Amino acid sequence: MADSCGCGGTVDVRALEAGQRRVLLIVLTINIATFAMMITAALYSGSSSLLSGSLDNLGDALTYLLSLAVVGASLRAKAAVAVVKGLLILGAAIAVAAQIGWRLAHPGVPIFEAMGLAAAVNLAFNGLCLWLLTPYRFGDVNMASAWECSRNDIYEGFAVLLAAASVWMFDAGWPDLVIATVLLLMFLRSAWRVLRSAFKSYREAA
């Protein structure tokens, strides 16, 4: 009887890990594709907020790749990878800050049509990613941090849409910079949350 229970537990864990790998592979593929689309649109439109979104997608793709690598690994390994994820988010924040500084020195009005279209497509795919990851949001630190990144993508998507509408309404570049600054603060907050959770899990696993 005990053997039967143990076997069932093993099967359940393997099924859970297989499901995690499948979901992470899907969202990884989506984020690679949306990064390519977003970076192209950001360079074409001259939008700082769109560029921040593309960097976010690149960071997420790397995050999902790392998450995929440690499915089934020890809590200590997952916590260590979560630290790397937090540092990736922090790196994205630094890149966005540098872009904002460059735009302040070289003002211009972004092409709102390209911004809006790219942001709408990106938001739709990010919604799919969040839906796929939501069942795992209260799982281990590995999947929880992946869900955190996906949730941030939803906020970022709406923010860039707002930036595009504001650029069109005011025919000016400052709304784009304002939204990019808001996204920068979001990145910093997310990096803090992920790193705090990762270090906590790392101490518990020690």
Rank of each mutant, 00 (worst) to 15 (best):
S197K: 07
L117W: 11
D60C: 10
L104M: 15
G72C: 12
A118K: 01
Y155V: 07
A42W: 03
R137D: 03
E17F: 05
A69T: 09
D140P: 06
L183E: 06
L188K: 02
L130C: 07
M169E: 15
S47L: 01
L184D: 00
S197P: 01
S45I: 04
A144K: 00
V27Y: 06
I111G: 13
V160P: 00
M1K: 12
C5M: 14
S190F: 02
A198S: 07
L117T: 12
L195Y: 04
L184T: 03
I154A: 07
Q99W: 11
V27E: 06
L90H: 06
I26G: 06
Y202L: 09
L133Q: 06
A119K: 03
F158T: 03
L58I: 02
F158A: 03
R76C: 08
Y44E: 08
L128W: 12
G59W: 01
F187S: 04
A2Q: 15
G19M: 00
W192M: 08
A2H: 14
A124Q: 09
P107S: 07
L90S: 05
S52I: 05
E156G: 02
L117S: 10
D140L: 09
S145M: 08
L183D: 02
R151A: 12
L43Q: 15
T10V: 15
A33E: 12
T181F: 05
W147D: 11
T29C: 11
L184P: 02
R151D: 11
F187K: 02
A95G: 14
Y136W: 11
K78N: 09
L161V: 12
A18K: 09
R22H: 11
V178R: 00
D153I: 11
C7V: 15
A119W: 04
A119Y: 05
C149V: 14
M115V: 10
G173I: 07
G86L: 07
L25H: 15
G6V: 15
L55S: 01
V182C: 14
I39Y: 07
L75K: 13
L117Q: 10
R14A: 12
G6F: 14
Y136L: 08
G173V: 04
I179Y: 00
F112Y: 13
L177V: 10
G101P: 06
I30Q: 02
A2P: 09
A144P: 02
A18S: 10
R21S: 07
F112A: 11
Y64R: 06
V81N: 10
A73V: 14
F170H: 09
G72W: 06
T40I: 13
D56K: 03
N122E: 03
V160S: 04
L130Q: 05
A15L: 06
A18F: 05
R103Y: 12
T134M: 14
